[in-house]
């Protein structure tokens, strides 16, 4: 009996394995061609002297010179570190705001779908040509009307806080926070949408149980909604970190592009690879901290 079971299990596993690989193959090939090869090529280039001949690239191994140049001489390390710290702060803000908005937008009230479209506008607008047109025009306006843009620099807010006798440091924090609310809202479109999808996937019967047992809204949130949202919180943390750390407007990305556009491929590759390793380390730490705390309903 036992033996037979084992045999059955083996063939089942083998069958599963075969189908699994068939399902995976297209993606594996794609990743190998469009990610793995370019990635290793980039890493290789970062250790090389890169020059060009007609129709081909000549790369000669030259050690870690490019890394030394970029990270220490050009202070890319400091730049990258600063941006990663900003990334973490922004990720926290984005998470809080997007959970909050998703819960509101998930409730039933008048004009809900219209509100959803409004708060998802960043997804549709925040990339490509549309954004560059906005930015171009807005900076143009700013350069023409440098006086009128000062209204938005929170001088009124600063003065108000000063008159209340609050210290300089706190004022700085508050003012920065207010002016970055807009930035953060524009970063959280995807996250809001993911949280709404997550909230929709919580079974209504769990809420019915809460009602029957007489739980308060506060308990309902912390005992049902929040634990079942943890997979989406994790998903959104990873997404936000990657999204914010590789924003094309960040100075780090600008530096990498600068080297690339000026045909300094070794430097560009070194900066890119190093920065990539830093993000990877950050993600590793976060995954290690959080992976035990995610609640899956299946297990």
């Amino acid at each position: 009996m036992n033996n037979k079971n084992k045999l059955l299990k083996l063939s089942y596993e083998r069958r599963q394995g075969l189908v699994g690989y068939v399902f995976l193959i297209p993606w594996l090939i794609g990743t190998a061609v469009f990610f793995c090869y370019p990635f290793f090529h980039t890493v290789w280039l970062s250790f090389c002297d890169v020059s060009f001949d007609t129709g081909r690239i000549i790369s000669k191994f030259s050690g870690i010179g490019a890394y030394k140049f970029v990270f220490i001489q050009q202070q890319f390390l400091q730049q990258a570190w600063t941006h990663l710290v900003t990334t973490c702060l922004h990720t926290a803000c984005v998470l809080i705001i997007s959970i909050f908005l998703a819960i509101i937008l998930n409730q039933e009230f008048f004009g809900r779908s219209a509100w959803r479209v409004i708060f998802s506008l960043p997804i549709i607008v925040a990339s490509g040509l549309v954004l560059s047109v906005f930015q171009k025009d807005l900076t143009f306006q700013a350069s023409v009307t440098s006086e009128s843009t000062n209204i938005f620099q929170n001088e009124a807010l600063t003065e108000m806080l000063l008159s209340m006798g609050i210290g300089d440091k706190i004022i700085n924090v508050v003012v920065t926070a207010v002016s970055s609310v807009v930035d953060i809202l524009w970063m959280s479109g995807v996250q809001i949408l993911l949280f709404i999808t997550g909230l929709q996937s919580i079974s209504p019967s769990l809420y019915e149980v809460c009602d029957v047992e007489g739980a308060t809204a506060w308990q309902r949130f912390w005992k049902v909604t929040f634990p079942l949202l943890t997979p989406y919180i994790f998903l959104n943390i990873v997404y936000s970190i990657i999204d914010i750390s590789t924003q094309s407007t960040a100075s780090v990305m600008y530096t990498i592009r600068y080297y690339y556009n000026n045909v300094m491929y070794a430097n560009s590759s070194a900066a890119g690879t190093g920065y990539f390793l830093m993000i990877l380390a950050l993600l590793g730490i976060i995954t290690a901290l959080l992976s035990k705390r995610i609640v899956y309903i299946d297990k």
Partner: peptide, 30 residues
């Protein structure tokens, strides 16, 4: 699925964060 290559999913996340601007040149070559 219970496959031995499940670890490859980590590769996915890795691929997710490697920014496109660095990969342009090798991608063009390939």
């Amino acid at each position: 699925f219970n496959l031995r290559i499940k670890w490859m999913f980590k590769l996915v996340v890795t691929a997710l964060l490697f920014n496109g601007s660095v990969l342009w040149l090798p991608q063009y070559v390939i």
